[in-house]
């Protein structure tokens, strides 16, 4: 539910393709195929995936990719910082927060690219 809202908000705001993945495995497959995404929003409080591990993988292979950790848990903010995440999206958030996030990281950049929302 939250993921779909994030996807629709960013797709409308940026008029760019926004992909979503149900599982960490799907996201890893996509990344493994040589993705062109600029920004990843990774849910880190899911029960069936390790979002922090995914952020670590992305940052290790492509440090320039922007990774945002999304969580409803206070303690995850420190963990996200430890994984070199670029941002922390604390739940509950609103449309204006997503606008702010996209404007901060994407709007001032010129090259078109995809955005991903994972979980």
């Amino acid at each position: 539910m939250t993921k779909e809202f994030v996807v629709d908000t960013l797709a409308y705001q940026l008029n760019r393709q926004v992909l979503s993945f149900a599982t960490e495995e799907e996201a890893r497959d996509y990344i493994g195929q040589g993705d062109s995404a600029q920004l990843f929003i990774v849910g880190v409080d899911g029960t069936d995936l390790d979002g922090f591990d995914l952020i670590g993988t992305i940052k290790q292979s492509s440090p320039a990719k922007i990774c945002i950790a999304m969580s409803a848990t206070v303690d995850h903010e420190q963990q996200a910082a430890g994984m070199s995440a670029d941002g922390f999206l604390a739940k509950p958030f609103g449309m204006a927060d997503l606008f702010e996030l996209a404007e901060h990281f994407l709007v001032e950049r010129d090259s078109p690219a995809e955005v991903e929302a994972e979980n």
């Binding site: 539910m1 939250t2 809202f5 629709d8 908000t9 969580s71 409803a72 848990t73 206070v74 903010e77 996200a80 910082a81 995440a85 670029d86 941002g87 922390f88 999206l89 604390a90 739940k91 509950p92 958030f93 609103g94 449309m95 927060d97 702010e100 996030l101 901060h104």
Partner: peptide, 23 residues
């Protein structure tokens, strides 16, 4: 790292009505 969204003291799961009003 920038922080966006709820303040630490107000963090919680997003409920149906949260998403409804956001949408």
């Amino acid at each position: 790292m920038i922080r966006i969204g709820a303040a630490p003291s107000e963090m919680r799961r997003m409920e149906t009505y949260d998403i409804f009003f956001c949408r």
